[in-house]
Design a binder for these strands. Structure first.
Length: 888
DNA sequence: AGGCCGACGTA
DNA sequence: CGTACGTCGGCCTT
């Protein structure tokens, strides 16, 4: 039986907006989501509970309707629609698009009129259609019949009243078709339709019933006695107007048939992406995924046909021989991390649908030889998803992986670098519109045990990688990322794999003694802090600290956080400056040393049996193109403080090598800015080769370079560094401890001097707003749709990202090229030295005996030559027995 | 056990 | 009210 569900999108979203506290529903970027959340929740619940076969959502277009034309004050008393609400309507529409639910708007009419038209059509169309109307607008009660029911939200967004004819009559004392007559008499505050003063629903209903309808009440108005009758006669005009305005239009030309509102497949991948974007997780996410789509467990498209075999002993060579020279999908089953791994099995998929799986266990010697040769054969092109891990596992198995023609994870990253995950299953859904795994019950009927399942999913994955590579190659090409992929990102994979494999040697004894040294001090500071306040609290708990600082010690409140008042170092410093309370001194010192101790502890835990730390570099995490490092993160080892640098003493040259070398770019980001902005003065400042910050300070303050004071230099240095981040006058003032207006003045003078910078920065944002993306020197894109957001926070945040992305990203391009060149040059020169780490603008290299000089020359050449900019790329190099000593 | 938040380390 | 990250402990929920 057809069951049509109609929703009043605007009224429901508006209710949700006020029912849910806005501060609990917003994303990291400041987009409010309370209305989206509440609306979606109501929608999903009603889909689940009512199982409609047809659905549509109606929206208002604007306040201007035929009603406001007719009666200028219609809805005039309403407060201005908040921007925080308006910005959520497009999101709701996007959500509906993902759910494949049609939504309708008609200029000059309200959502109610659209719903009234659809109800009328649906009931006329067939005799057995049932209609449900979910709305927060009582005018719709006039649409209730024995086949159409209004679901009216009671409180919040969870309780719905089921308004059948009996329920309407019970509540208002009149049948549904008479409800607008009653409303005309009583009036509707929210629409600014005044009714008859002193007449409530009770009296109105009695009149309507007694005289059989409003028309008769009006006709016989003079028979109504008393004050209320008098008031009615006096406001008769209002009543008639109200009745005219609250009648819903039932014959709008909508251009859709009820049949077109039948539920259809949703775009699950798009929906998932939107849920991610809106940070909708947890219970609602589950509920949505469970409820929204009919047949949500089935693949969006049928999975591919796979002609798969599991190869037995001595079958490998023969099968591989048949594969030919076309690219194949390769999936490595196994585990990897910390520079090593293990292969359990390999699956190869061909474009024609054939696939094979081979388990490592039980390989015959002949199989092993054939497989090793095939894997290492660069002339046998292979497509892998995220090849670095597999190549580590393959290497640990004693084989070598060559001929990687495409890495689908890297391709997807270049196409859309802001994704949080590039999991094969997500990409398969997103780009191939099919589920990666077929559900267990539609297995081919021949695969039963666990091993077969492993084999099958490996082959499916290999096939997905192969199919994805075709689709993504196209997308990469269109995004202008082809060269970046083939010349930079893919060649970088083996370089990173080698770095992870090598690891960096650690002086465990040194770190352990440092750890106990800081541990001692942690205890001491904690004890002293407890003594001051006369009790023991958890100094690491911001919550407990707030009680002590603001309640018990009565200190002035600091900046607010979501959960109270901040106790961060800056704020504590500020409190100490005003109160000089000794507790604060101990607390700050405690924070400092406990952090140092934790850092060391974390590092020690990751030292492998070979005495080295093998971090993992991630190539698809940072939206700007940078690498990231985990387990442990070796890109944030302390360096700013004396004590922090002692940790760097723990990273040392390994046995068989002579020293560590660090090589870093100086002021890489400012140099890139000079190049991109073509600001003549800035370029000159770099070409002069003198102290850059002093040089620029002398320009801004218009003094001789010799006359630049350290204060002037510090200000301009902060300015130089802040520029690429979209620094504000406020931010600069905070950092320099000056007033915002002084900081603003400084910025003005700076831009006055370096006009090219200003025009470059504004140009970058304008261009990005126009094209939708920013671009680095090598064409790496970052898409920033929020640049046109009507939410100020979101928009301005996107603007700062747009300023920063080309600069940070170009620097990332450069050092990646430098790594490739350096690695290749080391090999070409036959040196044994090896790259260990990359820290964004710095390389750490382990120097083999006797190679220091040659290596230094080589590294300088290759790093400086990574790009041809209008300013020189200055590289500074240092060597020593530890990372600390190698600094310069 | 898993997720969020505040705090803080790096470039 | 400054970009890009990763990690930790506390604390809350499941």
């Amino acid at each position: 039986m057809p069951r049509l569900l109609l929703l009043d999108g605007h009224s429901l979203a508006y209710r949700a907006f006020f029912a849910l506290p806005v501060e609990n529903f917003s994303t990291a970027t400041g987009q409010n989501t309370n209305a989206v959340y509440g609306f979606t929740s109501m929608l999903v619940n009603v889909l689940r509970d009512e199982q409609p076969t047809h659905v549509a959502v109606a929206f208002d277009v604007s306040r201007q309707t035929f009603r406001s034309e007719e009666y200028a004050d219609y809805k005039a008393k309403r407060n201005k629609t908040p921007d925080e609400f308006k910005s959520q309507l497009p999101l709701i529409e996007r959500m509906l698009t993902c759910f494949a639910i049609p939504f309708l708007k008609v200029d000059g009419y309200e959502a109610d009129d659209i719903i009234a038209t659809l109800v009328t059509d649906a009931l006329a169309d067939s005799d057995d259609t049932e209609v449900l109307i979910l709305t927060g607008d009582r005018d719709s009660l006039q649409l209730v019949t024995d086949r159409s029911t209004v679901l009216y939200p009671m409180r919040g967004v969870s309780d719905l009243a089921r308004m059948t004819p009996a329920a309407v009559e019970e509540k208002y004392g009149v049948p549904p078709h008479r409800y607008p007559e009653l409303a005309a008499i009583v009036g509707e505050t929210s629409d600014n339709l005044p009714g008859v003063p002193g007449v409530g629903a009770g009296f109105a209903a009695r009149w309507i019933n007694t005289y059989d309808g409003l028309d008769n009440v009006i006709a016989q108005a003079d028979q109504i006695t008393g004050k209320k009758g008098e008031a009615f006669r006096e406001h008769l005009g209002d009543v008639i107007r109200n009745r005219r305005l609250n009648a819903l239009v039932r014959d709008l030309p909508l251009g859709v048939t009820i049949g077109e509102l039948a539920r259809s497949d949703w775009d699950r991948a798009e929906a998932l992406a939107l849920l991610d974007e809106l940070e909708i997780r947890g219970e609602l996410r589950t509920r949505i995924l469970d409820v929204v789509a009919p047949g949500e467990d089935e693949p969006v498209e049928a999975g591919v046909e796979l002609d798969g075999v599991t190869l037995g002993p001595d079958e490998v060579a023969g099968w591989l021989a048949e594969t030919g020279a076309d690219p194949v999908g390769l999936h490595v089953g196994g585990t990897w991390g910390s520079g090593t791994g293990r292969v359990d099995g390999l699956a190869v998929a061909l474009a024609d649908g054939r696939a094979a799986y081979v388990a490592v266990e039980g390989l015959s010697p002949a199989d092993d030889t054939a497989l090793a040769a095939w894997l290492a054969d660069a002339a046998r092109p292979k497509v892998l998803h995220d090849a670095k891990g597999p190549s580590l596992a393959v290497a640990a198995q004693g084989w070598q992986l060559a001929g990687v023609a495409e890495d689908t994870a890297l391709a997807a990253y270049l196409v859309a670098p802001d994704q949080r995950s590039y999991a094969l299953a997500d990409l398969t859904l997103r780009y191939l519109h099919r589920e990666l795994e077929q559900s267990a019950d539609d297995d081919q009927g021949m695969l039963f045990d666990e091993g077969d399942t492993t084999a099958r999913s490996a082959m499916v994955a290999a096939r997905a990688a192969l199919d994805l590579s075709v689709e993504l190659a196209d997308q990469v090409e269109r995004a202008g990322g082809h060269r970046l992929l083939t010349d930079v990102e893919m060649p970088l994979v083996p370089v990173l794999a080698a770095m992870e494999q090598t690891g960096i040697a650690v002086d465990v004894d040194h770190l352990e003694s440092l750890e106990s040294h800081f541990g001692e001090e942690v205890r001491k500071e904690a004890d002293e802090a407890y003594a001051v306040i006369g009790k023991e609290i958890n100094l690491g708990s911001p919550k407990q600290l707030q009680v002590v600082l603001f309640d018990e010690l009565g200190m002035p409140k600091t900046k607010r956080t979501k959960t109270g008042y901040t106790t961060d170092a800056d704020a504590l410093q500020g409190l100490f400056a005003t109160t000089e309370h000794p507790f604060l001194a101990h607390l700050l010192r405690h924070r400092e040393v406990i952090r140092l101790r934790q850092t060391i502890e974390g590092l020690l835990k990751t030292v492998q049996p070979d005495g080295r730390i093998h971090t993992t570099f991630h190539q698809t995490i940072a939206a700007t193109g940078r690498l990231s490092s985990t387990e442990p993160n070796l890109q944030n080892i302390p360096v700013r403080t004396e004590e922090g640098r002692r940790i760097r003493e723990g990273f040392v040259v390994g046995p068989g090598f002579e020293s560590l070398m660090t090589a870093d770019y100086s002021q890489i980001e400012m140099r890139i800015m000079a190049h991109l902005s073509e600001d003549a003065l800035l370029i000159e400042a770099f070409r002069s080769g003198r102290d850059f910050h002093a040089e620029t300070a002398s320009r801004v303050f218009d003094v001789d370079p010799d006359a630049v004071t350290s204060e002037m230099r510090a200000k301009i240095k902060a300015m130089n560094y802040g520029l690429a981040y979209g620094l504000s006058a406020f931010g600069l003032s905070q950092q320099l401890g000056i007033t915002p207006s002084e900081a603003g003045g400084l910025m003005d003078e700076y831009f006055e001097t370096f006009g090219g910078i200003r025009s470059y920065l504004t140009g970058v944002v304008d261009e990005a707003r126009r094209t939708g993306f920013t671009e680095t020197i090598m064409g790496r894109r970052r898409y920033l749709p929020d640049l046109t957001s009507d939410n100020r926070m979101r928009r301005e945040s996107a603007e700062r990202m747009a300023l920063n992305a080309p600069i940070q990203g170009s620097a990332a391009d450069l050092i990646k090229v430098a790594m490739l060149r350096t690695g290749a040059a080391i090999e070409a020169a036959g040196l044994r030295s090896r790259i260990l780490l990359q820290v964004h603008d710095e390389l750490v290299i382990e120097v083999a005996a006797g190679e220091r000089e040659a290596l230094e020359a080589l590294v300088r050449t290759e790093m400086a030559g990574a790009a041809d900019l209008t300013v020189p790329l200055d590289v500074s190099v240092g060597t020593g027995l530890s990372w600390h000593e190698a600094a310069h």
